[in-house]
Computed example of a mutant assay.
Amino acid sequence: MSEPILKLTNIESSYGPITAIRGISMSVPEATIVTVLGANGAGKTTVLKTISGIIDPRKGAVIFEGKAIQSMDPDAVARIGIAHVPEGREVFPLLTARENLMMGAYARSDRKGIADDLEMVFNYLPAVKRLEKRTAGTMSGGEQQMLVIGRALMSRPKLLLLDEPSLGLSPRLVKEIFELIVRINGEQKLPILVVEQNAGTALKAAHYGYVLELGRVVMEDSCERLMEKEDVREFYLGAAPENVHADIRLKRRKTWQ
């Protein structure tokens, strides 16, 4: 794989006296999709919160583009190019879909670039384009998930963090969300770190994966190899891997050069 845009080295993060992640090391190379898998409580969300500055690690380093950023606050992390889409589809419910998207560009002053990126987002998200004047609070869960991904893209990020993008969505919408993730990665060469409980879908879409248990990395490999491992198949897939969204895998392989 290419040189990483993001590298975590021996990260330990806590919530008060409770240690959530313990000595985690992982990396995200340029232009790749990396997934972090694990059960509830494994520490997946804490990894993203530590990267984006919401949580300060007790130990270790977060290196982005060769510079340590673990002491930065979340606004500073966002301004250097890391966009974090948290779990739960946090839209501004009283603002329209268009206004929500424009909130993603709050730190930018390049009006022409913002206008171009808005059209790019609408190209990726035709459903959001159709609903651009509707208040976000009246949109469906799938529409809101598309909207928050689009809002993150409006910041023109160098790295996109996605926390459980499939949460609470129907299988059809999950498929659409991950097809969108694969398309953005393939066309924009945007590195993406996605935390996901839907292991089958995530492994089909991503290039490389980490498995967390109780705050530690217990397994890592290319997604193709992870899907061949008996432990992953038994505990995370629950079925033959080839039965889970094979079309996403084919598109991902075709677009990752």
Rank of each mutant, 00 (worst) to 15 (best):
K7I: 11
L8V: 07
E12Y: 15
S13H: 03
Y15R: 04
T19R: 12
R22E: 11
M26V: 09
E30C: 09
A31L: 08
V34Y: 00
A39V: 13
A39I: 14
G43L: 03
T50G: 05
S52E: 09
I54S: 05
P57D: 02
G66T: 03
A68Y: 11
A76M: 08
V77N: 02
R79L: 13
I80K: 00
A83F: 04
H84D: 06
H84M: 03
V85N: 01
E87F: 06
G88S: 05
F92D: 02
P93T: 03
L94Q: 14
M102A: 14
Y106I: 11
R108V: 11
I114W: 01
A115N: 11
M120T: 13
F122T: 08
Y124K: 04
A127K: 14
R130H: 09
E132L: 11
K133I: 14
A136R: 01
T138I: 12
M139E: 10
M139H: 08
G142R: 00
E143F: 02
Q145M: 05
R151E: 09
A152H: 06
S155T: 01
R156W: 07
P157M: 01
K158I: 11
L160P: 05
E164Q: 02
P165G: 04
G168R: 00
L169K: 01
S170L: 06
R172D: 14
V174R: 00
V174C: 04
K175L: 14
I177M: 01
E179R: 09
E179F: 10
I181G: 03
I181V: 15
R183D: 13
G186N: 06
V195P: 01
Y208P: 10
V211G: 03
L214A: 15
V218C: 10
D221W: 02
E228P: 10
D231V: 15
V232K: 00
E234P: 12
Y236C: 07
G238V: 03
A239S: 13
E242A: 11
E242P: 08
R249S: 12
K251R: 14
R252G: 14
R252K: 13
Q257C: 13
